[in-house]
Nucleic acid binder design. Structure first.
Lengths: 242, 242
DNA sequence: CGTATGTTTGACCGTCGTCAATTGTAGTGG
DNA sequence: CCACTACAATTGACGACGGTCAAACATACG
């Protein structure tokens, strides 16, 4: 576990290495300063701590600086549904905008640092920074298209295709952050994966074993190494690549 | 509460009976006039005509005045995935915002009238009408939460639960438009339903037959009458009620 | 009227869920 | 250091739900 460096000069949007991802690229520096005043950096969450709960009033969206987040909602009968995993540089919390109430609970899968983006201040700001509004809508739209890809996956694809797809998704998202796309640690449990993909733990485990036997991956618990990326890709049919 | 009648004969946002749904409720009349200048009403589409195709440049979102729309995307290997059905008063086309390119094709399931809302003009306008921006984000967020409900449905629920859920969804959406929630005509084919819900045509057909045998519904082809609404509801577990 | 398409129903079978047992891992305290 | 517990992960056996294949029928459209 890496110790949080609280005493050093607090990070801001200027030197956040993710700013190009979670902020409009075209924004001028003057605007960035204004935005920086709005963003709140909270102290790191540790594993199993929640950012917000389903039913909470919506006030902010959140960007991940490090770590990972699981979003899930709970139905009347108490069963959970994992709706997404979020990795560094990604933004979550949109689900609360519809009626100012979060539909999901967001929980840290490991020690995780997030930036809080208060939504009312953002709204004021975006009136004077036109690109900001468009950018946020694009981020929301990205959530929509990724949800729709998941819908396709759940509706049409086999267990192997779903898991291959998840591995490739994580691989691609890490790669975009300049992290290794072939060696990484899955932050979520097999149960979370199964829940997310509409499969049972047993099936997830079996597919991992089969993938390993086929030489697609090598894995020890949560540590994964992708040995045959193109092989995995061939297993998957996506609706449209992200 | 009546707006002054303008001499223009074509329908406009003032006397559109759906304006409370697709436009901000809090908007003052002066603003509504400005918005009305932006909205474009196109001539009705007939069945199988497309509003836009996957790959088209994104320029507008669309509100349905009458009729119904099916949105779907096509994967590399040519298989379709239906991503949504849209009924009167609902808005579609958000999928293009992410990168200015539509991911879906939108096609009329029957004779359908839509309003086109050019997005760049909307963006200008929303800078001066603050509620408009919030409202649009809420509509997008609603798309997100409804997609996530579908994800739950596909991941966890049986064929019967999925179809019951779809029937209830349509029923509820029609009810909100002051249309009969118990007697309606399904605008889409069994194949579309199956595609949307991740089932085969045969399964869809069998479930309809079973529902009819159990007295939940009465249906003749696409005409459906819900006889036991609470019975259907008991079959379904939703993540969070809409 | 003929062809294409949509719908229904039946028979069979494969994938994945269920149930169960075993092993491995993490955390706690003696 | 080793029990001891709790939980995560793996593997096997079996069965059900829903997909596949096939055929019959209804409906729409040129």
């Amino acid at each position: 576990m890496q110790a949080p460096k609280l005493s050093i000069k607090p990070t801001n949007c200027h030197d956040c290495r993710m700013s190009t991802l979670c902020l409009p690229l075209a924004m001028e520096y003057g605007d960035l300063d204004r935005l920086d005043k709005v963003i709140q950096r909270t102290k790191p969450l540790h594993k199993n701590q929640s950012v917000f709960y389903a039913g909470d009033a919506f006030s902010s969206v959140y960007a991940i600086r490090s770590g990972s987040i699981k979003a899930y909602c709970v139905s009347d009968d108490g069963t959970e549904q994992v709706t997404g995993f979020y990795l560094p540089g990604e933004i979550f919390g949109w689900d609360g905008i519809a009626d100012d109430t979060h539909k999901n609970t967001a929980v840290a899968l490991e020690t995780t640092a997030v930036c809080e983006i208060p939504f009312n201040k953002f709204e004021e700001l975006s009136a004077s920074i036109p690109t900001l509004q468009r950018h946020f809508m694009q981020l929301m739209a990205r959530e929509i298209t990724s949800d729709q890809q998941l819908i396709t996956l759940l509706g049409k694809n086999s267990a192997e295709e779903r898991i291959a797809s998840l591995l490739l998704s994580i691989s691609g998202r890490l790669g975009r952050r300049k992290l290794s796309p072939t060696r990484f640690r899955l932050p979520m449990s097999r149960a979370d994966i199964g829940n997310y993909l509409g499969l049972t733990v047993e099936t997830v485990s079996r597919v991992f074993s089969r993938f390993q036997a086929s030489g697609y991956i090598k894995c020890d618990k949560k540590e994964v190494e992708i040995l045959n990326l193109s092989g995995l890709s061939n297993l998957v049919q996506t609706c449209a690549e992200a």
